Structure formats: C-alpha cells, structure tokens
Computed example of a mutant assay.
Amino acid sequence: MDEYQRVRRRHRQRQARRRLRRTLALLCAAVVILTLSAGITALLNWIVPPEGQTADSSAPVSDGNVALAPLPNTGTGLVQNTSFSSIGPVQQESWNLVQLDADRIAQPETGLVKPEYFQNVVMLGDSVTAGFYTYSTSIKGVATICGYRSIHPSDIVNRTTLTREDGVQEIALDAVAAADPKAVYVLLGTNSLVSADEKKEESFLAYYERMIQMFKEVVPDAELYIQSITPVRPEVSTLNNEQIRRVNEKLAQLALAQGCHYLDLHDCLADENGDLSADLAAEDGIHLNGTGYKQWVDYISRHVAYSADLPFLYGSPYATKTTTTAAADTSADSAAPEGEA
C-alpha cells in the first residue's frame, strides 16, 4: 500500500510539472504575439501616421547601434500624408485632347526611292498634274499620269468622262482600277477654290471625302497619298494662299481620318512668305515650270511611307537640302522649255 501511494504521488507531480510547462509556453507565446503586434503597429504608424500627425520620414531609422537608411521615396520625394485610400488609380477630373495640325500629320521624310518605284504609281489630278505630260522628269514614262484640265473631285465621284492631256478620254476611277497601282497620288483643288466661298469649300471637301472612299473601293490594296494644294504667286487674283492653307489644313485632317498619307507640297514649292517660289512658277503664277516638277518629284520620292520591299537608294535617308537639290538635278532628265501645263 505504501508503494502504491508513492507511485501515485510521483504521477501527480509529473502531471503538475507538465501543466506548468504548458502554462509557461502559452504565456511566452502570448508575450511574443503581443510584442510583434506592438512592433507592427508602431511600424505602420511610422509609415502612415495617424490623421493629424506628420511622420518625420526624412530621418534615418536607428535600431540599436545600427543606422538604417530611410525608405525609398521618403523625405523630399514622398507625397506626405499618404493613406491607403489614396493608393491606386486616380480618376481624372478633366482632360484636353490636342488636335494634330497639318505639319504633324504630314508624311515625314524617309529614304529616296528609285524611279522604278513609280512603275506602280498613279498620279491623278488637274492641270497641275497634267504638266507631267509636258516636262521631262525621272517619272515621265514610268508612272501612270491621269491629269485632266479643269476638273473637280465631283467629276471623279460622278464618273464623268474626262480627257487627258494626251487626248485619251476615260473615266478616272476606271483608269485607276485598270492600272492596279500600289499607290495613288491625288492633287485636286486649284480649280475648285477659284473665287470659292465657304459653302463651295464645304462642298469641295465633301466630294473629296467621297472620292477617297471610292478609291478605296476600286483599289483597296493601294496606298493613298493626299497632296496639299500647291501655292500660287501673290499676283494671282483668283486664288490666295491664305485660303489654300486653310483648306489644306482640312485636307490633312481628312487624310488622317480616312487613313491616308498627307504630303505637304508647300515644303518644297513655297518660298519664305508661303507663296509659290518664283523660280519654280510658270508664267501664270499658278502652274509649275520644269524645275518645279523636278522639285516635286524629288519631294514625293523622299516622303514614301516605309515598307521593307521599297527600292530605296542606298545611303539616302535624311539628306540635306543641298544634296536633295543635287539628287533631283542628277536623277531627272533635262527639262523641256518652260510653259503652262
């Protein structure tokens, strides 16, 4: 019996020691959890101070004998009083949409393409384009010229039978479709703007837009280049360059909206006053002379939308104005005697 009592006491003592160890372990865990919670709370209050307080985030953090660097973007770079509610996308209250002007819409300069590029090109326009029949340039006999005197975009849209400078009669859309070009260069507007008021300008632009859409229907794979209306000499009474510039701005916007390329011919034909340069003008002050057509061809040869299969002349991109003129003189044949187109 005495032995039984001793064994029972030892068993109870072991149980008491186990309970004590478990209690001490729970107390230690609670102390650790409370310490971590206090540390996390202090850290959050340091990073994101409570409302009404400002953290001194520019000062280094000290941990015993070790100096810690400030957090990134603190001090001069941190937006103060950051709160979790302000983190994330911010809804914009207002915005401004900037409309591109003609200078920014215009096709930028690229490399100089060889004349063979124009084997698959149609040049369509009025008497200004018809001058390619008269003057010798590097694209004469290479490009398909559809130049008709005194025409308007409405003549294209209405499928009017037109007479080319060489006497051939045709419907312009059918002629373009038959050529199956890779690119079509359009220049129209000189005749439409003669003594035109605002209503005539609006009609011109409406027909121009419809004409572009019809070109897309007959030659859907062709690149369309809308060329600015060429400037005139200041002595021309029936046209003025201020009106031409205003309509060209609208043509640039139209080209952008319709997914066409816009070519600003003023870059190569206008003088410092915005008038047709005297040394490029024919006697009437509206059409170009032989030198003007060389300049025109050189310009469009340097402003072709890039494609890897284009026949660029090696080493030609971004040539200076001096070398541009020299290249035009060497690549073009001698001009025919000057005269009206």
Rank of each mutant, 00 (worst) to 15 (best):
Q258F: 00
S316F: 05
G292F: 06
Y207R: 04
T35E: 06
T320Q: 02
A328F: 02
R104S: 13
S203A: 15
Q295A: 15
R6T: 10
V168G: 00
E165S: 12
E217Q: 14
Q243S: 08
K321S: 12
N241S: 05
P60R: 01
E217P: 10
E272A: 13
P72L: 01
W46E: 08
Y4P: 07
T35I: 02
S136I: 07
T330W: 08
S228N: 04
H11E: 08
K294M: 10
G131D: 06
A281L: 04
L193I: 08
A29H: 11
T160P: 01
G167W: 11
T230C: 00
T54L: 10
E242C: 05
A332S: 15
A341W: 04
P231S: 04
H11I: 12
E201W: 02
I139F: 10
H287A: 06
V142D: 05
L276K: 07
G125T: 00
G147L: 05
T330K: 11
S136G: 10
L44C: 14
D329K: 11
D2Y: 12
G189V: 03
Q92T: 11
S127M: 03
G274Q: 07
D279F: 07
A177E: 15
P50C: 09
S138F: 08
D155L: 05
D284N: 12
V90W: 01
E165M: 15
R210G: 01
T190N: 03
A30I: 10
A281P: 09
E3Y: 12
G167T: 03
P70M: 01
S127E: 06
V297H: 11
D126L: 00
V236N: 04
A196F: 05
V7Q: 13
T238Q: 09
Y133H: 10
Y135L: 07
S301F: 04
T23A: 15
T190Y: 04
P89I: 01
T291W: 08
E209G: 15
L20P: 06
T325R: 12
A335M: 03
H303E: 05
A67W: 06
I145N: 05
S334L: 12
T330H: 11
Q107G: 05
T54M: 08
V157C: 04
I33A: 14
L44E: 07
G131S: 01
P181R: 02
G290T: 10
D329N: 12
Q53R: 12
N248V: 00
N45R: 13
W95M: 09
I145H: 10
L205F: 01
G292N: 11
A255C: 07
M123S: 06
V194L: 04
E3N: 15
Y293C: 04
A341F: 11
V79K: 09
G125Y: 05
V186D: 07
L188P: 01
A305D: 09
C268H: 00
A305E: 13
K199N: 13
V184P: 03
A143I: 03
V113S: 04
K216F: 00
H303N: 03
E3A: 12
Q91E: 15
L310N: 14
N240D: 15
A341L: 02
T23K: 14
V194T: 10
P153M: 03
N248M: 08
T23E: 13
T137Y: 07
